[in-house]
Simulated scan of single mutants.
Amino acid sequence: MAANAVLVHHPQALHYKFNEQHPFNPVRLTLTMDLLRQLGALDEHQMVQPAPAQYADLLRVHRKDYIEAIAALSSPSPAPDLLAQAGRYGLDFEDTPYFSGMHEAAAAIAGGSLHAAELVMSGQTQHAMHMAGGLHHAFPERGAGFCIYNDTAVAIAHIREKYNARVLYIDTDVHHGDGVQWMFYNDPDVCTYSIHETGKFLFPGTGFVYERGDGEGFGASYNIPVEPYTEDDSWMESFTTTVEKVAAAFRPDIIISQHGCDAHALDPLSHIHCSMRIYQEMPAIIHRLAHHYAQGRWVAVGGGGYDIWRVVPRAWALVWLEMCGHPLLRTDHLEQLSMPETWRQRWTQQADDELPTSWLDDSASWTPMPRRAEIARKNRETALIAVQDL
C-alpha cells in the first residue's frame, strides 16, 4: 500500500454556507487541513485545485430546470417569482435554504469530486480525498439534507460514461445515502452500500434492507441500518461482516467512500454512541479492499459531521493519514498520542467546546448504554439479512 495520494480542494467550497446558525459549517474543512499541516502530514505539493463542475457535468445527474433554478437563486437579489418557486426545488426549508453564491460553491464541490475520480481513474494517482464532497442527499430535481448538487453522483456518472468502470460506493455517514442510491438504483455496475442509523428514527427515513435495487440493478444496493445507541463493537461488527462480502461479490474497478462522521456520540444530529475508534478502523478496511479488488483505486469524500471542533477534524484527518500511509497510524497506542499543541492553541479561543487532547476517545470511561446486548443482537440479525444472498 504505497503512499500515492492527493487532496483535492477548491477555495470556493469554503463559501458553501447556508447561514451563521446552520449546523453545516465549512470551517470543518479549514480545521482539518490546518490539523494535518500542524502534524506535518499535508504539504502543498499533495494538494490539487479542481475546476468547478460545468453544466454538462451536472446534467448527468440533475435536471436542467433544477440547475437553472439554483443558478438564479444564487443571485444576491433573486426575482420574487423565483423565490416563490424555491420550495418546489427543496430550497426554502430550514435544512437546505437557498443562499447567495450557492451555485458557484456547490459547483466547486461537484467539480472537486469529479476531478478526484478522474485523477484516480486516469492513473495519475491511486488515491484521492475530497473533504468538501459527500453531499449525498441531493436528488435530480431537488435539494435536501444540506445538499444542493450531488457531487458523488456526478463523479460516478463521469466514471460510468468515460471509463465504463464498476463503482462500489461505500457510505459510512450516520444518515442513509439516499440520493446516490436512488440515482443508480437501476444500474448493475454501480453498487451502493450504506451503513447508517435506521430510518425508523432518523432522516431521511429510508435505507432499509429491502431496498435492493430495481430492474437490472436489483442486488446492487445494500443497506445496513443499525439501532439507536449502537456502540463501537456492534457498529464495526455490522460493517466488517457486510462490506467484506459486498466487495468480494461485486469486485469493483474503483471504490468511492463517503466519510460522514456523525455517528459519533458527541454529534448533535443523531442517536448513535460510537467513538473515534470507528473512524480509524473503517478507512483502514476500505483501503485494504481497494487494493485487494480495485488495484488501489480509491476516492474518499467527506459528508456529515456536526460536532465541528471535537470530532470532524480528527475523523477526516484519520482518513487522510490512512490514505497516504502516515507513520502515526503504525503505532499500537494511538489513543495515547496527543493532538498537535500548536493546532489546539490556534483554535482554542474560537472553539465552542474544549478541543480534544488525544486522537482517540477514552470510551472506557463512558457510561455504558442500557440494552447494549439487545442492540448488538438486533444489529447482528439485520446485517445477516442484508447480505444473506452473498
Rank of each mutant, 00 (worst) to 15 (best):
I308K: 02
D361F: 06
P356K: 07
L269W: 00
P368I: 10
W320D: 06
G305P: 08
Y293N: 07
E335I: 06
A294R: 09
T348Q: 15
A351N: 05
Q280T: 07
E354M: 10
G325V: 09
D352W: 12
W347N: 03
A315K: 00
P368D: 11
A290Q: 08
L289E: 10
H292P: 00
Q345S: 14
V311A: 01
P327C: 05
W366Q: 03
W359Y: 11
Q280W: 14
Q280E: 13
S275W: 00
P313V: 10
Q336F: 01
V311S: 01
S338A: 15
D262I: 00
A284V: 08
D307W: 00
Y293F: 15
T357I: 07
T342C: 08
E341L: 13
W343E: 09
E335S: 11
V319T: 14
A315R: 01
H287G: 06
W359E: 02
L360V: 06
G260A: 03
Q336C: 07
R277E: 12
P268L: 08
H259E: 05
W316C: 03
H259K: 01
L360N: 04
Y293P: 12
A284H: 12
P283N: 09
V301T: 15
I278E: 02
P313C: 11
A317S: 15
Q258G: 03
T342H: 08
G325K: 06
S363D: 11
S270L: 01
Q258D: 04
L355H: 07
